[in-house]
């Protein structure tokens, strides 16, 4: 057994002073409650309204259409994500460990089906849409790829005029109708509903619309204006001038410094570091050196100054 003064201390046999634990607790509660009410009355709390797909496609129609195309041609963030959404990539690695891949694609998302084809199928049929979908569903994978590639090549010249998305190509088969109809659907608000109701009437799962929204630039642009990006230490920030999660300062700090600021595996590396540091904090009482700092720094002399004064007297 260790006899270190950082581990052992004899039970106290010295003098006691009166102490009313119930009174202390009551006073503390009343003070904190009054302080909370005061802060709430003076500062209120932030509530930036939610972003809808309707709002996104109305304010940034081209960004929406380009994102829809990225879901279709497999270049979107979600399409290339890997686990838990699909197997398109092995995801982030911590050294040789591909933790996400090991646990698998448990929340399967097929961006072509879930973000484009299924919502369009839910739409009331127009002759143009019906024939486009029939054409798409009847085509071979190679044919679909050829259409999407043709559209993608021309998409640099995409325009949005008179409420219609157009791209200068004739080789894209049903894709122009599909993208344009998805745009109309989004602008009417119907896509917001279609994305959440794919699993039925009742739902509390917003995985699909959130992934779709996050694949575009619109949400990120709003976040950047609000100083919420990861590169802006955004994790600890709140909208407006409200204090945020200041307790995340160390977590968000790592993302700002090399090698993490440029690493493709930054997320898992930072999580690894934070788990290690949390473990260190947890085990402080057992770690020589770390547990001796209080004795060396002698801050305790301030806390117990009366005690030591009485002892020295």
């Amino acid at each position: 057994m260790s006899e270190s003064p950082d581990v052992k201390v004899a039970p106290w046999t010295g003098p006691q002073r009166p102490y009313d634990i119930i009174k202390e607790g009551t006073i503390a509660f009343v003070v904190v409650a009054i302080l909370t009410i005061g802060l709430a009355l003076v500062f209120s709390s932030p509530d930036d309204p939610q972003v809808t797909v309707q709002q996104w496609s109305t304010k940034a129609p081209i960004d929406f259409a380009q994102t829809a195309l990225a879901e279709l041609n497999g270049t979107s963030g979600t399409a290339q994500y890997g686990a838990p959404y699909n197997t398109a990539s092995s995801g982030q690695q911590l050294g040789p460990f591909t933790l996400a891949k090991w646990l698998g694609a448990t929340i399967p998302v097929n961006t072509v089906r879930d973000f484009v084809v299924d919502p369009l199928t839910d739409q009331p049929a127009t002759p143009a849409l019906s024939s486009a979908l029939t054409q798409w569903k009847g085509a071979s994978a190679t044919q679909r790829t050829a259409w999407v590639d043709a559209y993608t090549k021309a998409s640099g010249k995409m325009t949005f005029t008179n409420g219609t998305v157009s791209v200068p190509t004739n080789a894209a088969g049903p894709v122009p109708v599909m993208i344009n109809t998805l745009e109309q659907m989004a602008r009417s608000g119907a896509l917001d509903q279609a994305l959440v109701t794919q699993s039925g009437f009742y739902t509390s799962n917003f995985t699909l619309p959130l992934l779709f929204l996050a694949d575009g630039s619109y949400l990120g642009d709003l976040a950047q204006q609000r100083h919420l990006l990861g590169t802006q230490w955004g994790m600890m920030n709140e909208t407006g001038n409200y204090p945020g999660q200041a307790w995340l300062w160390l977590y968000t700090f790592w993302y700002q410094v090399p090698p993490f600021s440029t690493s493709a595996n930054a997320d898992v590396q930072v999580w690894g570091i934070m788990m290690l540091l949390s473990l260190l904090l947890l085990l402080v009482p057992f770690i020589p050196g770390l547990r001796s700092i209080p004795r060396w720094t002698r801050v305790y002399r301030l806390i117990w100054r009366d005690h030591y004064r009485a002892q020295g007297a």
Binding site: P46, L219, L228, M235, T239, N265
Partner: peptide, 20 residues
């Protein structure tokens, strides 16, 4: 259920997903 939760959840998913 506001902008905050949309942004925070879509950001945090990457960190949490990366751990499995």
């Amino acid at each position: 259920t506001n902008f905050d939760s949309q942004w925070i959840s879509t950001q945090a998913k990457d960190g949490i997903n990366s751990t499995g």
